[in-house]
Design a protein around this nucleic acid. Sequence first.
DNA 1: ACCGCCGGGTGCC
DNA 2: ACCGCCGGGTGCC
Length: 975
Amino acid sequence: MAWMCMRDSAWKYLQSAHLGGDRNYSHYTSRDFYSQFGLEDFLCTDDIPGTDEDTDSAVLFGTLRGNVVGLRYYTGVVNNNEMVSLQREPNNLYDKNAVKVNNVNGNQVGHIKKELAAPLAYIMDNKLAIVEGIVPYGAKNAFTMPVQMSFWGKEENKQAVLDELKMHGFKLAPPSKSSEFGFGSSWVSGRAGPSYSAPGHGAVQMTTEQAVGTPLLPHQKQALAWMVSRENSKELPLFWEEKNNFYCNTLTNFAEKERPENVLGGILADDMGLGKTLVTIALILTNFHDGKPLPVEKVKSDQLHKESVVTGVKNEGHELLKGTSCNVEPNISSVKKKSETVQSQYSSFRPKRAKAEKPKYTVSSDSEESEEWLPQQTRTKCEKDLPATRKRSKTASCIIQEDTGFASALASPSAPLKKKAKKKDTASVQSVKKNDSEEGPRTTLIICPLSVLSNWIDQFEQHIRPDVHLNIYVYYGPDRSKDPSFLSKQDIVLTTYNILASDYGSRGDSLLHRLKWLRVVLDEGHTIRNPNAQQTKAALNLEAQRRWILTGTPIQNSLKDLWSLLSFLKLKPFTDREWWRRTIQRPVMLGEQGGLRRLQSLIKNITLRRTKTSKIKGKPVLELPERKVFIQHVTLTEEERKIYQSVKNEGKAAISRYFNEGTVLAHYADVLGVLLRLRQLCCHPHLCTNTSSSSCQIGDSTPEELREKLVNKMKLVLSSGSDEECAICLDSLNLPVITHCAHVFCKPCICEVIQSEQPNAKCPLCRNELRVEHLVECPPEESDSSIEKKGDREWISSSKINALMHALIDLRKQNPAVKCLIVSQFTTFLSLIEIPLKESGFVFTRLNGSMAQKKRVQAIQSFQDRQTGSPTIMLLSLKAGGVGLNLTAASRVFLMDPAWNPAAEDQCFDRCHRLGQKQDVIITKFIVKDSVEENMLKIQKKKRELAAGAFAAKKLTVSEVKQTKINEIKTLIDL
DNA sequence: ACCGCCGGGTGCC
DNA sequence: ACCGCCGGGTGCC
């Protein structure tokens, strides 16, 4: 969906600049355009117009050639076709209109000649346009150099800019097609340019030594190998080339003698639940050797085992993870490391290097072809030995002990931790002291939201072997340490974004900013997507050799949001927003192929992202226990059958009549009502008695009565579980409203229809007259008083309840600890089920969609609790809770009534069939024989086939929706 | 010559 | 800057 919020302006611009004139561009499918690059996640630029530079809505007014003067007074140098930055210098003593010219590095090159500076100053000061420069011939200019300027701004400011320039005798050249929107005119189109074909991720040798159980899953090892390779990367960063002893940035053409710093880090963007925390802990441990931290800067190659250089070191650090088998060589400073040991190659876009020896092993971010990531000798072993799930012994680490819960660690973080460190870690503290003065930083700083702080502490506790001397300090709370040397002696400092930001904001001497860190890890790194937020600024100003961003959500940020992350990683020249904007953000927004290619290779280079459905070595990343679905047929009693049959006959007669009249869809709500009652009767006779017959005519009632009837109908449609979609947008209902003809649409959709078809708007489904003032909105949910009412009636059982209770009691006999979900679309039904549950002595809890957050959490927690006496049953309404709902304590599901949409059922099952589920999940669907429920299964089957087929993503047209609905009704009522 | 032309001094904003 | 511009020196051919 992210692509939808792409700004119109970009396309507007595309139209005016590319296609020209009044071409209709609305049919251009931007989704296709972007999805071919797999970049949908990056296309949302939902910025607020008028905020900061607002460059996304800028159009190119034109270009102008000018001169840069005064070169001999400044040191900044520029290559041919290099981008330069134009900055106002209002305080210049000689000319208040001064505009200085800087190169990409921020070194001043010169000034814009004063005659041109005068109008530029006016334009820039009044923010009429952004002026960007590219120097066509920068080299060998002693005194002046030309500069090609592009003027970008809002359409409404174009004339003012033109006028101001004209007043000073300048005229913009219209934007030329070949200029690729000012992004490197001649040089981009003039030469082929580097092709940034996806570089493989560097791999690190691993050994098979000490292969014992494997706590790291294959995809986690892959992530670790990737991270280690990135931390030890010696390749030039992406978009940099070595040319005549210079390092040249291929995007801006900036070049310098000094080698650009490597980006020793990246973005680990795996889905939630894939174990980013664990992998990060493993990464931290790669800096350990013999249970002690590796000296980072001063390590000499010969300190490492000799054979390690050839065959790969047995990674002590890795073994520190409990029961690890897959070893990575120690992760040391790249400067000191022998080059042969690192196999990383990013050579595909550099022919010269490509000829060099081939990497033995490469890691590819493309999960489909990632068999290559492990060395040959390791591969077979790992394949054989990998258990489906991890087993971890529950021993505490040496620093945080069993008794050091999160609360105590937070309440007084320094005291208990310090004490333990002293008591147990004398040796390691000593060794640190000895090396302290001569070594580089040893500390990894982890910043996370407060809510996951405890998770980090738990994970350290769980995964670090007790004999590893690791100092962990939680920098949090009012008593947090103020001693920089204390912090720098830690191996890990854990803190929150709030602490980071408030330290940075309040004290100028923020402790975290005074220290140089070995590594900074931003957990939930998308927290810094807003460049103006204090925590972002604070994070960007941290000094660290290695920088990592962990983020669970796909980087659903806009391109703009991505900037903060890149800036944090310190990939030159993107640390400066102007270069990010000019080389990536705007070209991508304008749909320029080169821009997309660059973004794609950038993302591919610095991020690793796998989803739960990603595959590694052909196997899913997460191997869940099996999920088995059984259908249990239920036969109605004679009495139940009588009622069912009579309601069915009545309903079938009415629906046949609608068919004969051709008014099925006009009576859609009534049809749904009939079907609903039948579905309810399959569950329990008491469910449907209260539902009023909606056969009464709408025409002859008072407005109030009419309104009430319509509201009831809408509620019927919404609550019928039919998963209604709006027939206009074909998406799920947003702000549902009902028409007088009793059809439910999204309010914005139907209003648009009425607007555009004025004055005689007709219902898209039945062509009845439509009026905005006739639309009835859905009133806010009132509390379920009906449930109480039902409770008053004398309770009777039903065939389905009997079947359920039979199954439950049977199950309890086999295993009293097994936990079940009982799922229904009818909360009233769940209430009815409560009674026999109580009678049979089951402890149960309940989760409805309407429950307050606090109650929900309580219900979930008590159910997930494994203690004896905790609830073994949860009553769950089908749609309760989002995808995040975790009910893995349950291994059995009883689905009391089928849903229209099989996806809704699957989603419900996934609440227990997900990461953390250790047992096979057995699902029982109760289906009444010879009833609407059996017909619903038929429809489910069809929908599943459709979803699996080639037209999975195809959206149906309105008439197709109509036909589908009609066919469904026929199937359901046996017509 | 209240010019032109020459050639030295000079040079961002 | 192999320019432009400035201002002093100079002045038929």
